[in-house]
Structure formats: C-alpha cells, structure tokens
Design a protein around this nucleic acid. Sequence first.
DNA 1: TTAACTGACATTATTATAGTATCAGTTATA
DNA 2: TATAACTGATACTATAATAATGTCAGTTAA
Lengths: 141, 141
Amino acid sequence: MKLLTKHTDYAIRALLELAGSKDEFLSAQQIAKRQRVPYQFLRQILQGLIKDKLVISKEGRGGGFRINKHPYLISIVDVIVIFQGNIQLSDCMFRKKLCINRANCVLRKQINRVEKLVNKEFKGITIGCLLRDLEKPKRRG
Amino acid sequence: MKLLTKHTDYAIRALLELAGSKDEFLSAQQIAKRQRVPYQFLRQILQGLIKDKLVISKEGRGGGFRINKHPYLISIVDVIVIFQGNIQLSDCMFRKKLCINRANCVLRKQINRVEKLVNKEFKGITIGCLLRDLEKPKRRG
DNA sequence: TTAACTGACATTATTATAGTATCAGTTATA
DNA sequence: TATAACTGATACTATAATAATGTCAGTTAA
Ligand code: FES
Ligand code: FES
C-alpha cells in the first residue's frame, strides 16, 4: 500500500532541487540528471507544478523552471493534492442499505478522523524543512 | 488514493456477517448473497481469513464458515494486513546518495510517525464495535 | 538560423486490483 | 451409495491506476 506515488516523489525532488537554486532557472534536463529521474516523466510533473504556480517557467534557450513560493510555504500535501487528489483514505465502504446509520457509523467517523490527522501531519512537512535537513547532513550524536 | 481495497472491504463485511451469527456456520453463498459481494471473490477472501484463523471452516454439505475470535479482538488492521500487507505509507522516497543523512531525515521521520498514528487509530476499530453500530441504528439526537 | 529549451498531448508499458472459472475432495442426507 | 451442497486450491482473465515514452509545434538566446 502506497500513500505517495512516483509523481509525488519526483515532484518533491524537483522542488528541493529548485529550492536549492532559488533564483536560477534550471532546465528539466538538469533536474532530471541531478535527481536521476526520467526526463519526459519529469517534464509532465513540472507542468503539474506550473498549474498550481508552485514553479514558473521560461521558454526557449537558457530557459527552464524556477521555484515560485517560499520553500517553507510548500508542504508535501500541496504536492500530493496535485498528483493524487485529496487525501481520502477510503470511499465510504458500506452502502446505504447496510449502513443504515451513516451519520453515526463508527468506521466512517474513525476513518475521517485518521484522514484529518494525516492531512494535518503532512501539512507540517515543507520543502523548506526537507531542504534544511538535506543541507545539514552532519549532526553530532 | 485508497487506503482500503475491495478485499479489505468485503472481508470486513463477511466478518460482520459472521460475527452476527456467532455460532452458526454460514456458507460463502449465503454471505455473498446477504452482503452482495461477488461469490468467487469472496471465497478467495475467506481463505485469507482462514490462514490467519480469524474464521474456521467446515467442509461438505451444511458446511461453511464461523468466526473464530471475539469480535472486539478483531481490528481492521488485522484485516488490512492480511490483504494489503503492513500499513506502509511510502517506501523510502530518497535513495542513499540523495538523502545522506538518512537517520535524521525529516521526511522519513515524519512519515514514520504518521504511519504509527494510522496504525494505532485503526487498531481501535474492531469488528465488535462496528457490529454494535450496525445493530443499534437508532440513537436519539 | 539553429541549438536548447517549454507546451501540449498522444501513446505505450507495467503493475496492482478485481473478478471468474475449474476441478478435486468432503460431508450430510435421502 | 449416489448426489447435492459445500470447501480447498489454484489458474486464469479483465480492468484500472500508475509509470514512462514519443512527437511535434512554438519560443528564445546566441
Ligand atoms: S462506512 Fe459508510 S456509513 Fe458506515
Ligand atoms: S526519505 Fe528516506 S532517508 Fe530521507
């Protein structure tokens, strides 16, 4: 069972790369090479990030992509939502006839609660804090 | 994004049905009909439940399946684990070279934390409490 | 004017999930 | 003792989600 797909995975890597060179434009080629991600696939993903204005692009020679938001303001939920839709742990499992008491259904309630929890937790994980973690690899134990 | 698959869905329904007729053997046919679940698919699922001894079976005419554990001791995690494996929200997203500081990786830590949370929450949801909810549909508001 | 780029979109491959089919063996019962 | 109603086991097919590739038109800097 996977909560995060490759789309999300690669998107986060791309964002980390772009956050690391904040003011430059990086081409899809460069990002693909540095992060070892399939080039064409990455391009699709970058288009997704553009739609939500997490990055902007510049066409033509010397063009590429640049991050468009402060890294601490981009959480991994933002990315998940673009590529996988809202975090929804399950459709309502039981249909009307079975689950007469939908409003009070324990399963429904619990799943909703867990869902909110996951959302909240993931909102706290930002590109900024991930980048900081990557850039300060040596901490004394 | 789905956390619960049809296997899990149907398994929970079957368990609810069996928990409702604790001491009888119900045939796969009966369960399939009552819960409106595809018969052959359900049979596969019941075999899964047998392997973990959540239910036992009786072969031959008049045979079928019977629940084998107290409903309050069967949580939906038990069922999820059988059909979908351990709740693991993602594989480690970044490989060694990228994430030098694996031990301290924020993402890794956070995802692990959320994972534990989900597990804990789902452990609290048992067949017993779901059945109780189904059987007492009318609560005063 | 051409090499290095993005935009847009069609296509294919791979894997996970969902569902069906078949047949051998068991058991109650008529 | 024949047979109808069952399970056990496993092979198979279908469908959908995910992952990845390919192509071509248009843009821009050098
Ligand atoms: S699971 Fe949907 S109402 Fe109970
Ligand atoms: S995500 Fe795996 S070590 Fe950071």
